[in-house]
């Protein structure tokens, strides 16, 4: 099909407008972050004097990493980072195992009560965490826990101020189970039958057949559970008082409350934003398809 010259000019003009609109939007979405990273390198006085012009977005003047070392001098931010890293890793890792097993059982095995369990799991999807946060504080404060005291195992009550209180409630996830079940149901059942005839148990089929064939489902669930786990705020701010167990987000809020040194605050926020940003840019395609997958349920 030939394009009329007039139409070609119109199209080119239209494209120019689209680029202009997108460039303007890119500025809108990026300027706060650029401002944050640049300010984290400047002394407080200069941040405020630069705010009136372009210099606010440029690393000019007295540039250094002093704010970063200032944060480390003031609070155990390395410890906070390790805490978050540990909590996030366990939630994502254990979640992949437990939720994929449940997804497998629901999509591949025939057992009584399967339908009920599936509808309960789907029902859990509409419960936002905020609705159960308050009763959950009460609940975990009553849960039994084993402690090692003077070489003896003793019983105690209350999970407050621990790693388990930050991890265990978030491992099982109805949406992850649902995604796995959907993915596993696309694997032909003929494979199962062949393996059964060869004497393989269900767990072997799960481990040797379903898991290796489901890389994309694992990647999607890992990405979708990683961000909320890393960003946890409401829950740990209620159940963790001990500074040694504090995750980065809550640590940052305390730092922000006790401080007016904006350079250091911006250093802190930059420090916890940068790793996530790097991971996102490295795996942006996987991120995008995971989010798209999360919309499929609609």
């Amino acid at each position: 099909m030939t394009v009329h010259p007039v139409e070609r000019v119109l199209r080119r003009r239209q494209r120019l407008w689209i680029y202009l609109a997108m460039a303007g939007l890119a500025v809108f979405f990026l300027f706060p972050l650029v401002f944050m990273f640049v300010s984290s390198l400047k002394p407080d006085g200069q941040i405020l004097s630069d705010v009136g012009g372009w210099r606010a977005f440029l690393p000019l003047g007295d540039i250094s990493f002093r704010n970063y070392s200032g944060v480390f001098d003031r609070v155990p931010v390395g410890r906070f980072l390790l805490n978050s890293l540990f909590v996030t890793t366990v939630i994502v890792g254990a979640g992949l195992v437990i939720n994929s097993m449940a997804g497998f059982a629901i999509s591949r095995l025939r057992w009584t009560g399967r339908g009920v369990v599936l509808s309960i799991i789907i029902a859990t999807l509409i419960v936002p965490f905020e609705t159960i946060a308050v009763p959950m504080v009460y609940w975990v404060s009553q849960l039994p826990t084993l402690l090692l005291q003077n070489g003896q195992l003793v019983y105690d009550f209350g999970w407050l101020d621990s790693y388990e209180v930050q991890i265990v409630p978030f491992i099982a996830n109805g949406f992850s189970v649902f995604l796995f079940a959907q993915y596993f149901s696309t694997i032909p059942t003929a494979i199962d039958e062949a393996a059964r005839i060869d004497g393989a148990g269900w767990f072997t089929i799960y481990r040797k057949i379903a898991v290796p064939l489901s890389g994309p489902a694992f990647a999607t669930v890992a990405i979708l559970t990683f961000l909320p786990a890393w960003n946890q705020y409401l829950w740990p701010s209620m159940v963790v008082q001990d500074e040694n167990l504090r995750p980065v987000m809550v640590g940052m809020q305390y730092f922000f409350q006790d401080n007016t040194a904006w350079g250091e605050i911006m250093a802190y926020t930059s420090m916890i934003t940068l790793p996530v940003l790097v991971v996102f840019l490295a795996f942006q395609r996987a991120f995008v398809s995971s989010v798209a997958a999360s919309g499929v349920k609609g």
């Binding site: 097993m101 799991i121 859990t124 308050v134 009460y138 099982a172």
Partner: peptide, 24 residues
């Protein structure tokens, strides 16, 4: 195989929902 996930959902989602209702 679904047991661990179901038990955890029961303990940390369904029980808190019911508990929240009762505590109200």
């Amino acid at each position: 195989m679904a047991a661990p996930a179901v038990l955890l959902l029961l303990a940390f989602l369904i029980v808190p929902v019911i508990l929240g209702f009762v505590l109200s």
